[in-house]
């Protein structure tokens, strides 16, 4: 069956019409040719439109990952304390992870409506599993002997957690944050469906959906942002774990 929805694809026929230069009113030359991959003239002319969406995308990502981290971290500590919680928490966060973000945004429709709040809830929920798993993995990888020695030397349970286990889990924890952040940058593009702004607004609009230049620009900015986060996390991880840089005998 064909779609009954008036998807923006209906705009396909309008590709040839071209984009009008904002100030001069001329038709940009590369717009005359359909399927032209990238129109530099248009890009330089319109790059300023991407400022706000980029900032929104950045905010959505940072806030969502921060919230996701706070919750996942607490969940992981709970699971460490109460081992019975481990499986339910893994399964629960797994369910939140598996629900497609677009669906998640709109599932919240009757509860939070549309907007930034909705997008942040769904995106944070998505990051929980990634971060939770990594924190748990990090704690599990702490050598038993170090914990045993710590206890034998008179560290309290809390001191063992904060002075031994968590520092040693830093690589996995940062690894989880890295994966969560990079994925969230990509997925935050879908926040347009929650009416929460972001770079998706520069793709999912009637004019742009058939215009490769606009799509490449938005997608490119998102990927660069992901790359930047990746580099930041790798650097932080390097400096936060000096003992992993040394050469073992």
């Amino acid at each position: 069956m064909t779609s009954l929805a008036a998807t923006p694809l209906a705009a396909v026929g309008e590709v040839g019409k071209g984009f009008i230069h904002e100030r001069t009113g001329e038709t940009l030359p590369c717009q005359a040719r359909p399927n032209h991959l990238f129109c530099w003239d248009w890009a330089t002319e319109n790059i300023h439109r991407y400022g706000t969406p980029t900032l929104q995308q950045f905010e959505l990502t940072v806030i969502s990952v921060l919230i996701g981290f706070a919750i996942a971290f607490v969940l992981a500590l709970l699971a460490r304390r109460f081992r019975l919680l481990q499986w339910p928490l893994l399964a629960g966060t797994g369910i939140l992870f598996a629900i497609p973000s677009v669906a998640f945004f709109l599932l919240l429709l009757p509860i939070t409506g549309r907007g930034r709040e909705t997008a942040i809830i769904a995106l944070s929920a998505y990051t929980l599993q990634i971060i939770y798993r990594n924190v748990m993995q990090g704690l599990a990888n702490v050598p038993e002997s170090a914990k045993q020695a710590a206890r034998g030397m008179g560290l309290t349970d809390r001191q063992i957690l904060w002075k031994v286990e968590l520092p040693l889990a830093i690589p996995e924890i940062i690894g989880g944050l890295r994966i969560a952040t990079v994925s969230t940058v990509a997925i935050a593009t879908l926040a347009v469906f929650a009416h929460a702004g972001g770079l998706g607004t520069q793709i999912y609009s009637e004019a742009n959906l058939t215009f490769p230049t606009a799509i490449i620009l938005a997608g490119g900015i998102a990927m660069l942002m992901a790359l930047a986060f990746d580099v930041v996390f790798l650097t932080v991880q390097r400096f936060a774990t000096p003992w992993r840089r040394v050469e073992a005998v």
């Binding site: 694809l9 399927n35 991959l37 994966i179 990079v182 994925s183 940058v185 990509a186 997925i187 593009t189 879908l190 347009v192 770079l199 998706g200 793709i203 999912y204 742009n208 959906l209 058939t210 215009f211 490769p212 799509i215 490449i216 938005a218 997608g219 998102a222 990927m223 992901a226 790359l227 990746d230």
Partner: peptide, 19 residues
């Protein structure tokens, strides 16, 4: 694997449809 995570699905789909 890392690069794959960074690809925005919406951009990919829209790009393919347009091109």
């Amino acid at each position: 694997g890392n690069a794959g995570r960074a690809v925005p699905e919406l951009a990919l789909i829209a790009f393919i449809a347009a091109i």
